[in-house]
Computed example of a mutant assay.
Amino acid sequence: MFEKLQAPPPDKILSLISAYAEDGRAGKIDLGVGVYRDETGATPVLASVREAERRLLAAQTTKSYLGMGGDPTFCRVIVPLVFGADAPAERIRALQTPGGSGALSILMGFAARLTSRIHIPEPSWGNHAAIARHVGLEIVRYPYFDAATGRVDFPAMKAALERAEPGDLVLLHGCCHNPTGADLTRGEWSELAGVLAERKLLALVDIAYQGFGDGLEEDAWAVRHLAGLLPEMLVASSCSKNFGIYRDRTGAAFVLGRSPEEAAIAEAQLMAEARTGYSMPPDHGAAVVRIILEDADLTARWRNEVETMRRRIADLRRGLAEAFRRRTNSGAYDFLTENRGMFSLIGVTPEEALRLRQEFGVYLVDDGRINIAGLKEDQIDAFVEAVVTVKG
């Protein structure tokens, strides 16, 4: 029967890993894979995580099942991190999931029981549409990014969502938009909240990069603002980036209900999705996060580490924009300082991206997305020269 199968297209980002590894050039630059790297080019294990793991190994007495919702204490302590101390906790339910992708999978699967259509920004992270298709949702793309300015085209976005049908699901990036780095302003979020409420749309907010934009509290502003205005909402959160535990697959799926009773029913439905998808999420990463967030001193240490990562990304953005300004004698790349998080679209075509790989050893995604955190300071000028050269 297998002869009937056709090979799926290779993952554009993951395929860069092999190509980069096989490149023997000393000056090669990897801006493709979306992981944070420090000034040495390493993706470090945070000191707060190491300490939490030490405590976990010393105290853990069993590896028995925890259940479909994962670690209940993790679920309790992750709510205020995302929704704030003043969150309507009685209307919120949280499930531990295998990373942010696991959260998106069970939330979209749950939403597919309520609606048939999802609105996804153009562009967006590729897995958003892939998961939506997998659970049978019809995908409608709404305009989001103005490539000419490097900023959000909010009037076009708002106009498109004002035409959405009541009950439709709307995917939103809570902060640090992937792949553009262009985020809504607080005023635009407020306008958007009015559209969502008036059109009776169900928001699904993906907040995968909390802490990498303007700060842990600042980056959660949109989620918290919407939670204070909307009767119902879904949120997918990832611990991969801000805790640096990528391979431990730790995330959370949240549902905000109109009432505690409706939230509890929705939670039970999410449990059913989890049961058929993966039965129980892996425990190690969630236990690490729990230990950190339950200890005030460890939490303070972790927050300082996240701030260090955030500042490095912001410094690289400024350095990159300044280098482009010097080389081009223009402000065409100043949007890099306005964008937030790890990613931006640098404005190269797939053909130019291929030239960058072949001629300069610069690895980035074909759509021009670069991982700012993949740069070292001493690579900035070489990268800028390569981009300017291929763009002629």
Results as ranks from 00 to 15, higher is better:
261 E>W: 11
104 L>T: 02
18 S>C: 03
228 G>S: 06
260 P>I: 05
196 L>D: 03
179 P>S: 06
66 L>S: 07
12 K>E: 11
315 D>M: 11
41 G>Q: 10
263 A>C: 08
129 A>D: 12
104 L>H: 01
147 A>H: 06
37 R>K: 14
259 S>K: 04
305 E>W: 05
133 R>T: 14
210 Q>Y: 01
211 G>F: 10
347 G>K: 09
121 P>Y: 05
358 Q>L: 15
162 E>P: 02
173 H>I: 00
46 L>E: 14
188 E>T: 10
384 V>S: 12
90 E>F: 00
314 A>W: 04
227 A>F: 11
330 S>W: 03
137 L>F: 05
244 G>Q: 11
44 P>H: 10
46 L>T: 06
96 Q>D: 00
240 S>A: 15
248 D>S: 13
389 T>P: 00
187 G>P: 09
112 A>W: 06
21 A>F: 03
95 L>R: 13
104 L>Q: 13
229 L>I: 02
307 E>D: 15
364 L>P: 01
328 T>E: 12
331 G>M: 03
294 E>I: 09
286 A>W: 01
358 Q>M: 12
357 R>Q: 14
110 F>V: 07
80 P>F: 06
360 F>Y: 15
318 R>T: 07
293 L>Y: 12
279 S>G: 00
261 E>S: 15
170 V>N: 08
230 L>G: 04
182 A>Q: 05
242 N>R: 13
158 K>I: 02
347 G>Q: 05
296 A>T: 12
277 G>L: 13
378 D>V: 08
102 G>R: 00
51 E>L: 15
217 E>C: 06
283 D>W: 05
134 H>N: 12
335 F>E: 03
37 R>V: 06
337 T>L: 02
72 P>I: 01
4 K>C: 07
233 M>T: 10
128 H>P: 01
47 A>I: 01
228 G>M: 03
91 R>Y: 08
111 A>K: 04
349 T>H: 04
166 P>A: 04
285 G>H: 01
308 T>E: 15
21 A>K: 14
170 V>M: 10
169 L>N: 07
297 D>K: 15
291 I>C: 11
338 E>G: 10
55 R>M: 13
303 R>K: 12
101 S>Y: 11
78 I>E: 01
305 E>P: 03
302 W>E: 04
179 P>N: 07
159 A>E: 10
142 Y>F: 13
308 T>K: 15
153 D>Y: 00
257 G>F: 11
